[in-house]
Nucleic acid binder design. Structure first.
Lengths: 246, 246
DNA sequence: TACAAGAGATTGTATATACAAGCACGGGGG
DNA sequence: CCCCCGTGCTTGTATATACAATCTCTTGTA
């Protein structure tokens, strides 16, 4: 590595690894040389290699496992299109009077489609709950959540009157990865009734899937009344490094 | 700082600063004690403080200026709900045959609403273009973009046959911040014709506003046919530190 | 007054070192 | 055969140190 270059060393190391992944020399799942090996081949200190690998890991290019090594991440570096936080938090931030009600809390057999999405055997048992959020008595969000019993065996026994379902899930198991998909649609009749929208009013549906390790922990869909709610936010320059414009 | 705690030291330092910002003790724009000061008060090494501050900076909570100091970031730590990359990139990643056509490229007077959104005087001159993306001849996205002439005075003279409008804008001015809002709606007739959807089919509309400094540079809306396209992606654990579940 | 040079403070990067924590594997004892 | 434990490798964290780069402010000089 060239100490006198314009680029900092840790960045050069990042590019060195990144290029090898892009070129296919390091294929998906393959093991990347250990930090100590990189230290000798690249002739930089371990802390520099460590920082480079840590940032690549943060960016999702590689996966690091303490005690085993560093590997090229399974998924190709696909663009994360959406990053979504708690809708309840957002509402509170806007100063609304927020309430939330649990309408269903039960056990169910997973349909083949749902089972496939959750990587379970068809007709496996899953937990199911429907939660409605309101802002000043105006429905804002209807959430339908399926939970893998293996991850949260005592989910149904919890008291969610204070709407701490997600905090509970977080406390039970650390989420390792998450998927968000947004679509526009006309929801089913009973969802429309809960949202108080008519059948001509398009709604946003946000599907969220969470993983704990390699296991799908939850599969949820959140519906938003198109006439009353949108999803969005403004970003800081630091976030922009990963954004390219269309 | 408690060396024997469950949390790593750099995380404790992050929380220490973060809490002070949340509580208001460190108000927006205020100067945060320098690294060396924090070293003595918290009794940790400078590298630890450095890592904590660097990560807080990456997360947009603080702003660091070499030679001057560290300051609480201007915008409050509002949740970025959405992070969206190039749709064209996404299509290419899926291996589709991608084409894009510019349908309109002209100068226009901004309506009062648009002018307000772009922080311009009513009926100011803006540049306007409509771009349609297709995947194997199936319309995927219709983009309507308004450009502030002060930012890109030669926008209309560019050759966008290869669909490098966004690259051009990026080359002209560095985007300092960006806003994304997603909603579900039934688009106008001419948009529906371009997207080849009927009037009963809900579509996704993604509104994007970009800033260059304190100036609004572009205001765009992208439409997606609900029946053929969704927005989404899967995330890595590192992103999850800023995500709370609903 | 205007401008240049320099000192001091602050953040950015790089290194060497050390220990902790987690995983894999093999050897020994039951 | 199975289980426990130790050994070695790997990543995670923490420290002390050093120098570079950048900004501010003061001081000196024309």
């Amino acid at each position: 590595m060239d100490q006198s270059a314009r680029q900092p060393l840790y960045r050069q190391v990042k590019e060195f690894i990144s290029d090898k992944i892009d070129s296919g020399e390091l294929a998906t799942g393959m093991r990347i040389p250990s930090e100590t090996e990189l230290v000798t081949t690249l002739n930089v200190s371990r802390m520099t290699v460590n920082r480079a690998l840590r940032e690549l890991s943060d960016e999702g290019r590689i996966r690091r496992v303490q005690g085993r090594g560093t590997f090229v991440a399974e998924r190709k570096p696909q663009s994360p299109l959406l990053e979504i936080r708690s809708i309840a938090e957002e509402i509170r931030a806007r100063g609304g009077r927020h309430s939330c009600t649990v309408h269903v809390l039960q056990e169910e057999k997973a349909s083949p489609q749902l089972a496939a999405a959750m990587q379970l055997a068809p007709y496996s048992t899953v937990y199911y709950s429907v939660i409605v959020h309101k802002d000043n008595d105006v429905p804002i969000q209807v959430g339908c959540r399926y939970i893998n019993p293996a991850v949260a065996p005592h989910y149904l026994e919890q008291d969610f009157t204070r709407c701490t379902a997600s905090e509970y899930l977080l406390s039970v198991a650390p989420v390792s990865s998450i998927e968000h998909v947004v679509e526009a649609l006309i929801p089913d009749r009973w969802i429309r009734d809960l949202l108080q929208v008519n059948s001509a009013e398009p709604c946003l549906a946000l599907h969220r899937k969470t993983w704990v390790g390699e296991q799908v922990a939850t599969f949820s869909t959140f519906y938003y009344p198109g006439s009353r709610y949108t999803l969005g936010g403004r970003f800081h320059p630091s976030s922009l490094t990963t954004i390219s414009l269309t």
